[in-house]
Design a protein around this nucleic acid. Structure first.
Lengths: 217, 217
DNA sequence: GTCTATAATCGGATAGAC
DNA sequence: GTCTATCCGATTATAGAC
């Protein structure tokens, strides 16, 4: 009878509510712009209560970012579900697009964190991400050697995929503005996903005697 | 002898210095995170002097964003320098890449502004940008009709171009981390630019009997 | 036009009652 | 474990001398 389970789940529930509220507020206002008062209000707890669970605003921010990181890694794993370039890329890009669509707030926080120079996730960049990129680059280079992908630098391909898929979270408002204020419908989003996948796959496909390759030297 | 030119240029010079400093500080810390004290210090003027030229922090931010907007429009015009899809896209993407490389701070402020829901440039989105997209979409659709581009939604192509090129400003730190902390060299950047251009051009090129087009219905 | 000194406010964090 | 009341540092903006 150490600690009653009820207490633990109250704690867990409060923490969850706070982190969720924090995600929304951080995404909207940025780290500095977010106020603990606003987060507490959104979570439905008094401000002091928030400070009881997360002693500093930065602790809370770190918890939010770590949540996003988990989602990022889950989507990343979908790259490995096939050894066919077309299939692997289609799955990975699709997963990233779905992530941006279903968790736009997290995605925006992620983008902001990267833009700010990764003050919190620097360690992740240097270890987990570096390894991920290194290993997947090797796969892409093998595809190139096998003639299934044209000669490219794998990193720049990943940058393109990350940027393009993130865009559907980061710029959702801009896109809505260009659709008379209406956010992309599910149908439009699926069409966009399809186009992104097909464009990138065609973009890295080996050129099979198509068109001029003007200055091959 | 209304107003001596010297005075005017002192004013102009001070404003320029303040806006430039503001750009750096806003890019680094975000709107809320930036302090007028830090901006004034960087610009080499007393804080009160800053408030003399820009009565509020928001005024100053607006001035910074408007500067970026000018650069954005200049790059956008390079789309119109050719009627050949390959050339027009290559020029436009190249100009956007160069913009991200040469003005990373501006580019990051732009990205942040978009992500925040465009509080300052909403009007630009609804007017100038909407027109730009509408007109260029028409051009792309003509290319499609002429069989020079495969059937795509032009908007999603623009989103991809904007996102991918912006990435080289937004994620410069992340890219450096993946190169053992060293920022992309000029050579690497040129290689990336080339790859981005070629991937997108190949990605939207008409499929000339290449590979399967699985379900053409 | 310029700048020092200061007013006014806001927001993160905590003390201490319950 | 929870919350009210409050402290204190930080920050925007201005008043008023030069």
């Amino acid at each position: 009878m150490d600690k009653p389970l009820v207490k633990i789940s109250i704690r867990a529930e409060n923490q969850r509510a706070i982190v969720e509220a924090a995600e929304a507020v951080f995404a909207e206002a940025g780290f500095k712009g977010a106020t603990t008062a606003a987060i507490a209000a959104k979570a439905g707890v008094p401000k002091a209560n928030l400070h009881y669970y997360f002693s500093t605003k930065e602790d809370l921010y770190r918890a939010v970012v770590e949540r996003v990181l988990t989602a990022w890694l889950a989507a990343a794993s979908s790259f490995d579900e096939s050894d066919d370039p077309r299939e692997a890329l289609a799955r990975y890009i699709g997963a990233k697009m779905d992530l941006a669509r279903s968790m736009p707030l997290s995605s925006r926080i992620w983008a902001t964190e990267i833009m700010r120079g990764a003050p919190v996730i620097q360690d992740f960049l240097d270890t987990t991400l570096a390894q991920w990129v290194e290993q997947r680059s090797r796969i892409v280079r093998r595809w190139i050697a096998d003639g299934r992908v044209r000669p490219i630098e794998p990193k720049y391909l990943f940058y393109m995929i990350w940027a393009t898929t993130q865009q559907y979270a980061n710029a959702a408002h801009e896109m809505a503005s260009l659709e008379n204020g209406r956010p992309l419908t599910d149908e439009q989003f699926e069409a966009a996903k399809k186009q992104v996948i097909e464009t990138i796959i065609a973009g890295v496909a080996p050129q099979t005697g198509r068109r001029a390759s003007p200055s091959q030297t």
